[in-house]
Design a binder for these strands. Structure first.
Lengths: 223, 223
DNA sequence: ACAAAAGTGTTAAGAATACACCCATGT
DNA sequence: ACATGGGTGTATTCTTAACACTTTTGT
């Protein structure tokens, strides 16, 4: 049998968080060639002794201090296949993951300045990472219509306003308050808790929680 | 920097054709270990000098005599990441592609007995390939509702009956003839040609063609 | 009493579904 | 003339979208 030399395998993560009314993505400033000094998605090489998801966790921990427990959803997005001529590292196969978390904070003082940027105000990114982020956002827009994926972005208890704001941030458009409540309640995604959000100078809002803390497909679509 | 040994990279294809009222998938009988003698999706190793899509084309040509020109649609499906312990070859990263073609015929006499099997009557497959086929079919079901992907499975000119039969084979359920025509025409996916299918002992059916021979997203969903 | 956000129903338009008969051709 | 699949329209149900006021709290 012919002898094959394997391409290099790398892994990158598109890590998203919801902060206020903004959806934000984690970037690092590269300290090594290629693209030294440019912003990029966090990533690294995958060695033979680890799976791509293990390599991803190792990378997010090393570069941004994020722990696997804080990451409430991980899904493979796409695998890029860079011909040797277009990548200074030679032929590389990059497996990209889509990662969501709740209230993520990058650890200060880590080497590559891990920073969350609002998705509608990204700097220029190394590789084709601007496109990768765009595709990720499209995927999230799709998934939000037929799954309970918002559970991965919101705190465990939240108000209807927070939920609607999250949907609006992801879909990029305003939703009607009454229709939104009606639709969400019909989907039986969430349930009321006994408590209220009392931290504001107005009528307290009831807190809700997701019934399931893992991905489920809806029987009917939202929207 | 730490030294990494790259995992092995392989590529596999889920090649589908529409024959009569059946959707069929291409399988080969493995001649090498692991899983020698079992049916599996056609695949092979990817070397550093080729991309995964090039490796896929090389494989489909070598194992089943299929030519890139006959393959009307190719899309990446998923990348499996087999930890070293579960795969006799050690840690392998397998990039799986979803491939559609029109009137595909595997070349007889090629080594690994390339054979199309109806998707609802598959033998047991090596690796996790039965699951892979299942996921592929779900993907196709999804895509058929919001794209013109049927163009890749039907001949360039076809009757409404062929079109409806194709949709039914993919969706796995019967559709109402009148509603189907109405819906398809509203989507402006296809256009009538001047000719008719005269090869039958009954009223000739008008032949239609797809307006676009490349993937397009529909503005409104089918179904 | 005022400011601020919470909470609540109805109507109209559009989309999806169910359903049965006549038409054109070959044998 | 008959067998076979081709081709066509309407009525009903369900889903989506538009829209404004009252309630509850803190200051």
């Amino acid at each position: 049998m012919r002898q094959y030399v394997a391409p290099t395998v790398t892994v990158d993560g598109v890590v998203l968080r919801l902060l206020g009314e903004q959806l934000e993505v984690l970037l690092v400033r590269r300290e090594q060639s290629p693209f030294k000094g440019e912003w990029a998605l966090p990533g690294s090489y995958v060695s033979r002794s680890e799976t791509t998801t293990q390599a991803l966790q190792r990378t997010l921990h090393a570069k941004a201090g994020l722990d696997a427990q804080q990451l409430t959803f991980t899904e493979q997005l796409y695998t890029f296949d860079t011909p040797a001529m277009q990548d200074p590292r030679g032929h590389a196969v990059s497996v990209i993951y889509f990662v969501l978390g709740r209230g993520l904070q990058p650890a200060a003082g880590k080497g590559e300045s891990p920073t969350f940027f609002p998705v509608d105000a990204l700097p220029h990114l190394a590789y084709q990472h601007n496109d990768v982020v765009w595709h990720t956002l499209e995927r999230l827009k799709g998934k939000i219509t037929y799954t309970n994926i918002m559970f991965a972005l919101l705190p465990s208890r939240f108000t209807f306003r927070q939920l609607q704001t999250g949907y609006q941030a992801i879909l990029g458009r305003a939703l009607d308050k009454r229709n939104f409540r009606k639709k969400i309640l019909e989907l039986h995604l969430i349930e009321p808790t006994a408590s209220f959000d009392k931290k504001s100078a107005h009528r307290p809002a009831r807190l809700y929680r997701f019934k399931k803390q893992s991905l489920e497909s809806l029987t009917r679509n939202f929207d």
